[in-house]
Amino acid sequence: MANEKTIWEKLQAIDRRVLYTLLMVIATVSLFFKVNVPTKPGQPTKDLYRLLVDDEALPEGSTVILQSDWTQSTRGESAGQMEALLRILMRRNIKFALLSVADPQAPLVARNVIRAINLERKAKNQREYQVWEDYVNLGYFPNAEGTSNAIAANFKTAVAGRKETPPGSATPLDVFQSPVLSKVSKVEDVPVYINVTGSKTSNILIERLGGRVPFAALVTGVMGPETLNYYQSGQVKGVAIGLNGVAEMESLMEKGLVETGKPEVKSFAGETNYGRGMAYYLALHTCLVLMIVAVVVGNVAMVAARKKK
């Protein structure tokens, strides 16, 4: 049997469906184990946490602009980021004006996350975040470039005409009458501009805002390396990247942040800190191990087969 394949040749040509099944099974099984995997947060995530929790950077009770540019297509990463962010903002009584530029579906998706975190707070007898009093939804603005330009030039005009219904009222009113935006007319009036994004809108904001306001981004892994470029040049003050960033944020919320030469940043120990990030983190570990093993097996088999020849 001269044509019979050797073990090394077979290992170089494992059927793709075997790999697919392995990946699916490994991911699924890992999801059933509730383990808080240890993390060592990187500097970009630490800076983001400091920016959001430190009272000097973001005073308690102030208003931020939160641009939510993700939909279900990046739920795996973006939902965890949004949940962690909202938990922090709500615990610190930070008001927020929510808007989206990437997708018409994005405001609805963001509203669902706000509702979920509110339910979590209600279950813990904490104050629920109220529309109008604590946050306003400015809705969707098509064309990321144009909208970001307009916001940078004149926030009040850019979102003029957007309305929100105060609780107990039947008539929607101009958002600038709300306690959230009553003191905001330009982007410079907010201490931080935050973008949770599943696309390139963070880059567009960096270009258009041009350093008018400290900018923080929570981006997907795909956008991570590019965003780190802006982080290193100081155009982004803090960044959480992908699922790893979510797990790091959750870990910081649980343990707080101590850094040499900088003031300590408090934790939220005792609250619900571990969420979607930690729920998926073990599965990410096992899937990455599978990836590494698959690549190593392919290479070892290739080298061994060559040597045999």
């Binding site: 793709r16 790999l19 990946l23 939909t71 297509s73 990046t74 698959a294 290479n299 290739m302």
Partner: peptide, 30 residues
Amino acid sequence: FDGMLQVMEAAMFSLIAFFILSAAYRAFRI
């Protein structure tokens, strides 16, 4: 929208994970 389109969009995006594993195994050779 929520029950079908959004779910299908997420499923479509996630399919790449399988292809990326298979492609890395086959093409990532030294």
